[in-house]
Design a protein around this nucleic acid. Structure first.
Length: 585
RNA sequence: GCCGACGUAGCUCAGCGGUAGAGCGGCGCACUCGUAAUGCGCAGGUCGUGGGUUCGAGUCCCACCGUCGGCUCCA
């Protein structure tokens, strides 16, 4: 995290900001009449938004980049100019940067300094800071071009955004470009095809992936793992239907808000409206409500691998990461307000177990709180918010966990705790969430009988350690680059007989492992050993077991590990022990 | 949904107005092989779909569908 939060004050940030200005200047010189939007540094580079007099494409980037280099070489000093609001307005009109820059000017709060930065005849409304001279901007590259709504609002005009990156040294730049290449190689969509994990058929529909046998195996192993852990943690699993009467979502209050993400209802002649569910919560609430609950029953943990359907806009779909039908590792915990802290800790423990098993080590917690200056966005119950936010903080503090607290990120019905993970390429993902909910118990009139014999409202926790299985699988494929750990690998071992005369023994080895519960394949093809090894290596099988004359004779197998290569011969017994050991680790 | 780019054999890609190509994969034959590709041969495409321009269209134009990069939204 460290670097990220210092980043806005860092020299690199400044360099990239200046690179963005350089880009803007180049575009204005090449396309007179272009209007400037905004052009900030971003995590891995910078962008600038333009309203261009003509459409441009990716093929125009080299030309723009060349112009940038030309301008940089002019050794222009970058000068800060402070003005009054009125002067600023005149200046913007004079340089013809209406309407966008004027809108930005108007958005600057009263009393704040208004500044421009000038380099040569280019001048731009900007807070700064910048490097001192354009010649300092040396190691940069334009990467892509995209549309972006003015001020991020889809009702506004779409501008043309040019993305680029910049570094202090050529080496860092190349390193970054190399990382982008690596990310491409790990793309779960590419690996999904190469490793036979899943497919998407337009005939079925976009955003509706189908798991192939190997992908389904990974999914099943993940499911078995989480179900076992949840049973241990006291969850009760239920099964509920994937369609429901639309009134259920009118009751929950989701329908008006969530309508755009829901498939249209199926309307029958008698007026009944059924709908594909976009979430599992209401079903679980009704299960809670199906019998009277005592304070002694709480926390009550209702869990389900619940499949939901959300209509995502076509442009948002992406492999397994963003789909229209997915299964959440969902649960709703009903509890007394004083149980919040303990239950949150209970949740964190489960999350930690999951992450440990998945070998995710670089993760942290983000506490999303209400914005105290903007309370009308949230449900009105100060005492409840206070209790919940304090409980969340205490839960984390007691466990000695570091977290970042973000104000204004809470849901309108309660604060939440997200877990952010960094994958091996440094990209951040939000996988798990623990969300407090003070609203739905009211909406569904959920109660429990307290010690005092009176009815009370339970607090509800929504939580999903795995998030959606689809997204988790996409993440894991990229994180492991398709090389799943032994326990999760769709094919754990392949037996490779060297010649036909070893086939019988190979089959015995294969059967033995299969009976021991391993996912094993026998490659009986009449191919050379080198060919088979290469094939299974590219399929990322954790272990290959090679059997030839020596192994048949000594009742052994020669083990080749995906990571370490040839590991020598062992007996099957030894192999089984080692495999067992590796899986329990 | 919006902006831009791209859809040619199962996969990766070449061809960009004049009779559809390569490598890998598949199948067949030979080889029976010791730690990342044995050799030879064969099959496989209404060039995303539908219109249009042209003597002639993977190749140019339009629409639709899909994919990719973004935006908005999100598990």
């Amino acid at each position: 995290m460290g670097m990220k939060y210092d980043y806005p004050d860092s020299p690199l940030y400044r360099l990239r900001h200046s690179a963005a200005h350089l880009l803007a200047q180049a575009v204005l010189e090449l396309y007179p009449g272009a209007k400037l939007g905004v052009g900030p540094p971003i995590e891995n580079g910078f962008y600038y938004d333009f309203d261009l007099p003509q459409p441009i494409g990716e093929e125009d980037l080299p030309k723009i980049e060349a112009k940038m280099r030309e301008i940089a070489a002019r050794n222009l000093d970058i000068v800060r100019i402070e003005t009054s609001r009125e002067e600023a307005r005149q200046l913007i009109e004079q340089i013809g940067q209406v309407p966008y820059k004027l809108e930005l000017l108007d958005a600057i709060p009263e009393g704040e300094t208004i500044s421009f930065y000038q380099q040569g005849d280019f001048i731009d409304l900007c807070r700064g800071p910048h490097v001192q001279n354009t010649s300092e901007i040396k190691h940069f590259k334009l990467l892509s071009i995209a549309g972006a709504y003015w001020r991020g609002d889809e009702r506004n005009k779409m501008l043309t955004r040019i993305y680029g990156t910049a570094f202090f040294t050529q080496e860092e730049l190349e390193d970054y470009l190399h990382r982008l290449e690596e990310a491409k190689k790990r793309d779960h969509r590419k690996l999904g095809r190469e490793l036979g994990l899943f497919m998407i058929a337009p005939e079925v529909g976009p955003g509706l992936p189908m798991l192939l046998p190997k992908g389904a195996t990974v999914r099943r192993v993940l499911e078995e793992f989480i179900l076992k852990e949840e049973l241990r943690a006291g969850y009760l699993h239920v099964r509920t239907p994937e369609i429901a009467n639309l009134n259920l979502y009118r009751l929950s209050g989701h329908y008006p808000y969530y309508k755009d993400s829901m498939y249209p209802p199926m309307v029958f002649e008698d007026g009944e409206e059924l709908i594909l569910r976009p979430m599992n919560c209401p079903h679980h609430f009704l299960i809670y409500k199906s019998e009277p609950r005592s304070y002694r029953d709480l926390p009550l943990r209702i869990a389900e691998l619940g499949t939901v359907y959300r209509y995502e806009k076509s442009g948002e779909l992406s492999g397994l990461i963003r789909v229209r039908c997915f299964t959440i590792n969902d649960a709703h915990v009903f509890l007394r307000p004083e149980q919040i802290k303990a239950e949150v800790q209970h949740n964190i423990e489960l999350i930690q177990k999951v992450y440990q098993r998945l070998n995710l080590t670089d993760f942290w917690y983000r506490l999303s709180l209400r914005d105290p200056d903007n309370k009308e966005k949230y449900i009105d119950d100060d005492a409840m918010w206070e209790t919940a936010e304090t409980a969340l903080r205490e839960a984390l503090d007691e466990l000695g966990l570091e977290y970042i607290a973000v104000k204004g990120e809470a849901a309108f019905y309660g604060p939440k705790l997200d877990v952010e993970v960094r994958d091996c390429l440094g990209r951040e993902w939000t996988i798990s969430t623990v969300q407090l909910d003070f609203l739905m118990a009211h909406r569904f009139d959920l109660e429990y009988t307290g010690e005092d014999g009176k009815p009370h409202r339970p607090v509800i926790i929504h939580r999903a350690p795995i998030g959606s299985f689809e997204r988790m699988m996409g993440f894991l494929i990229e994180h492991y680059a398709g090389a799943f750990p032994l326990w999760l690998a769709p094919v754990q071992l392949t037996v490779l007989p060297i010649a036909d005369r070893h086939l019988e023994y190979a089959r015995q080895v294969y059967e033995r492992l299969r009976e021991a519960g391993y996912r094993v394949e026998l490659d009986a093809r009449r191919e050379t050993l080198g060919y088979k090894i290469r094939y299974h290596q590219t399929q990322k099988v954790p272990y290959m077991l090679i059997v030839g004359d020596k192994e048949v004779e000594g009742n052994l197998v020669a083990v080749r590990s995906r990571e370490a290569g040839d590991m020598g011969q062992v007996t099957i017994e030894t192999l089984l022990e080692r495999l067992q050991q590796e899986i329990t680790d």
